[in-house]
């Protein structure tokens, strides 16, 4: 009898050991699966970023792009005190904000249209989202020139917004639609049944459910539009920070300043994206309309 209990407890403890081993091996396996991605990120993002960071705190040089081995905060002082740079940064963020709001709103409507349509119409709507991605970005953006010049929109901010919106919209639509496709229509019916009008039912139950998709759409649109290069370069006389960084590096050969501007922008972007997350997440549950 005692032997039996012993065996039972032994097999029990063995079971728990085995379980913890399994747990560990499954987390190890996950890590293993992520290894290529981690290596890729290290190689493509983290290491170059540290190089960038290092250049940004190097002194400038008259015969080289930067003075190797020196330390200086001169580049940051230059960036943070220049009115021109602040106006460029301001313009970049302004462009980013306008395009993001438009992309998310239009993307939400478009995703809803795909979600609610059936058969051929659904395929057609989905196909037209993907279609623009099949043409190269530069050609697509150039094509706006003959289209918008007669309307007097090029050169100008409106033209840039339209072109940049056209670049990010497919990603916004797909990000929102991918989440919306998994939600049940039932809850919308339940909301209407309880007295919510059509727009109200979408706002109350669809929007909170697709919030993860909206956040992804907003972050992608914002990051891409703040760093916009092709659209403002081709369609306006205004300068965004990406264009200015290019100018600093390739024309002026002032690497530390270019790197410092990039680091400042990265920091500001980080703050903005954290802000987007916080604000949008608040609308994930029940919320009051003003």
């Amino acid at each position: 009898m005692a032997l039996l209990t012993n065996t039972a407890s032994l097999s029990g403890s063995l079971g728990s050991i085995r379980e913890s081993l399994l747990d560990q091996s499954s987390s190890n396996r996950a890590l293993l699966l992520m290894a290529p991605l981690i290596a890729f990120e290290l190689l493509i993002f983290v290491i170059p970023f540290f190089i960038l960071l290092r250049i940004s705190v190097a002194g400038s040089s008259t015969d080289h792009v930067f003075a190797e081995g020196t330390w200086s905060l001169e580049a940051y002082r230059e960036v943070l005190t220049s009115d021109l740079l602040w106006s460029i940064i301001g313009y970049s963020f302004q462009l980013g904000a306008i395009v993001t709001v438009l992309a998310v709103v239009i993307g939400l409507f478009y995703a809803y249209a795909i979600w609610r349509s059936t058969g051929l119409l659904k395929s057609l709507l989905l196909f037209s989202v993907v279609l623009p991605l099949l043409t190269t970005l530069v050609i697509r953006t150039y094509a706006f020139d003959p289209l918008l010049v007669p309307a007097g929109l090029v050169p100008g901010t409106v033209g840039v917004v339209v072109a940049q919106l056209y670049i990010v919209l497919p990603y916004a639509v797909l990000a929102i639609y991918s989440v919306m496709a998994t939600t049940d229509w039932d809850v919308v019916e339940a909301a209407r049944d309880l007295g919510a009008s059509r727009p109200r039912s979408v706002l109350e139950v669809v929007v909170p459910q697709v919030m993860p998709g909206i956040i992804v759409a907003a972050v992608v649109s914002f990051a891409w539009s703040v760093g916009a290069y092709a659209a403002p370069e081709l369609l306006s006389n205004d300068i965004t920070f990406a264009m200015h960084v290019e100018g600093l590096m390739l024309s002026d050969m002032r690497y530390p300043e270019a790197a410092a501007l990039a680091v400042v922008m990265l920091g500001l972007m980080g703050v903005c994206i954290a802000g987007i997350f916080t604000v949008l997440n608040r609308f994930g549950g029940d919320f009051e309309l003003a």
């Binding site: 049940d184 809850v187 049944d193 909170p208």
Partner: peptide, 18 residues
């Protein structure tokens, strides 16, 4: 539906998940 004073209990209950 939203103008009628009827109320439905659905088969899968359709509770608002968020």
């Amino acid at each position: 539906a939203y103008e009628r004073n009827t109320s439905t209990v659905f088969q899968d209950w359709a509770l608002f998940p968020h």
